[in-house]
Design a protein around this nucleic acid. Structure first.
Lengths: 208, 208
DNA sequence: AGCCTAGAGTGTACGGCGTACACTTGTCAA
DNA sequence: TTGACAAGTGTACGCCGTACACTCTAGGCT
C-alpha cells in the first residue's frame, strides 16, 4: 500500500514490490496466491481504515460521517477506487461494511424496501459495489440463493434481510431481483428533484 | 470496440487486435501513435453514440433523457466506464458533451454558480470527469488559465463561463477553484435530503 | 516511360509483466 | 538427530507495448 500510495497503482508490480521488500519476486507467492489476492487484501485494509459507525446518533449523522470518513480514506489511497472496481467478489470485510450501512438505515426507520433502493442510489458514494452484490445473486438458481442467504443471516443479517425482500416481494414494481433501470432512475430522479428545488429557491454557494 | 464488446477490455491487446484485423501488430502503429490513443478514440466514438440533446424541452427532460441515453450506451460498451476513468485529458468530443450539458442547465434557469456545483454533484452519472476537468485548471498559473479560458470561449462557451465564475467569484464560500470537500458534501446532502423526505412519507416501490 | 513519394504493412528485438516449477535454506518440535 | 515446514531463490515461459529499420504498392510528377 505504501508503494501504491507513493508511486501509483501502475507501479505496483510483483517485481517492483519484491524489490522494495529486498526480496526476489517469487518470494511473494509464499504469502499470496497471486496478484489478485494481494489486491483483495489491500482493499480489505483500506476498508478497515474507515471509522466505525457512530452509535446512538441519528441515521443521517451516522451515514454522513461514515461516508465522509470513507472519502478521507480513499483520498489517502487514490488507487483504491480504481482497484475496487476491478474486484469481482466482495470479501467478508466489505460485506461487514455494507451490512453495517444497511443496518443504520433500517434502524433509522427506513423500510427494507426503501433501504434496498437507497443502497443502489448511494452507489459509488457508498463505496462502489452494491450493484454487483445483488447482480451476482440474480444469476443463481433460487435454491442456491436461498442457501447463500441462510448462511448470510448470522453474520450479515441486514444484507440477508434486503436480499430476501428483493426476491420475495413479488408485488413490488421491481419484481424478483433488481431492475437496473429502475434503480438508476430512482437515484437520478432523487438528484433531479433536489436540483429543481435548489434552482427554484435561487440557491447560491455564497450562503453555503 | 467490437473486440472489446465481445471479449472484454483485458482481451484488447495490440497483438490480439492486429490478429483480428489479419494484420501484424506493428501495422496498427501507422494509424495510432500508441495504445492510449487507440483508447482515446474509442471513448470519443462511445460518446458520439449518445443521443443529442432534445431541443425545446425543459431542462429536466433534456438532462434526464440525455443521461438515460448515455447509460444505454455505456451498457452496450461495458468496458467504457473503466477506460473513461483512466483517461487523463478530455478530448474535444468530451468537452462538447460537457459543454452542452452545462448549456442545458444554464438555459433552464440555473445560475452559473449552481450549475458548477451541479456538475460536480452529477459526477459519474454525467460521465465521470467534471472533477478532473476543473482540477487540472487549479494547478495552472492564473495567466495561463486565462489564456485557456479565452480559447475555450468560442467552442465551449458554457464551460468557459463556469470556469470563469469558479475563479473570479472571490466572495463565494468556495473561493478560488473548486473545494473538493464542499462539492462532495453538496452532492451527499442533496441525496440525504431526498432520502429523508422519502423515508418521512413512507415511500415504497410498490407504488413506483 | 521512368522516377519519387507517401502510406500501409512487415520482421526483429527489447524490456517489462505474472507466475509455474523445482530448488535451497533456516527453524524448531519430536 | 531427524524430519517437517515456512521462507526465500533461480530459471523459464508466454504474454505485453512498442522502437527501429525494412519492404511493398499505388499514384502523381517530369
Amino acid at each position: 500500500m505504501a508503494l501504491a500510495d507513493e508511486s501509483g497503482i501502475d507501479a505496483l508490480s510483483m517485481r517492483r514490490l519484491a524489490d522494495a521488500l529486498d526480496v526476489v519476486p517469487m518470494a511473494l507467492y509464499k504469502h499470496v496466491a497471486n496478484k489478485d489476492q494481494l489486491l483483495d487484501g489491500m482493499i480489505d485494509t483500506v476498508i478497515s481504515e474507515i471509522d466505525p459507525a457512530i452509535a446512538g446518533a441519528g441515521w443521517r449523522t451516522a451515514i454522513r460521517s461514515r461516508i465522509l470518513s470513507a472519502r478521507q480514506v480513499l483520498k489517502r489511497h487514490p488507487w483504491a477506487s480504481r482497484v475496487l472496481e476491478t474486484r469481482s467478489n466482495a470479501s467478508p470485510v466489505v460485506l461487514d461494511y455494507m451490512n453495517s450501512m444497511i443496518g443504520i438505515f433500517i434502524e433509522g426507520g427506513f423500510s427494507i424496501d426503501l433501504t434496498h433502493h437507497v443502497m443502489h442510489a448511494m452507489g459509488s458514494r457508498l463505496l462502489g459495489f452494491s450493484q454487483e452484490l445483488f447482480d451476482d445473486s440474480a444469476s443463481m438458481d433460487p435454491e442456491m440463493r436461498d442457501a447463500v442467504v441462510r448462511q448470510m443471516e448470522g453474520r450479515f443479517p441486514h444484507i440477508a434481510a434486503v436480499v430476501k425482500t428483493v426476491y420475495h416481494d413479488a408485488g413490488s414494481v421491481v419484481g424478483a431481483g433488481c431492475d437496473d433501470q429502475f434503480e438508476f432512475e430512482f437515484a437520478l430522479d432523487l438528484l433531479l428533484d433536489g436540483l429543481e428545488s435548489l434552482r427554484a429557491k435561487g440557491w447560491s454557494s455564497r450562503r453555503g
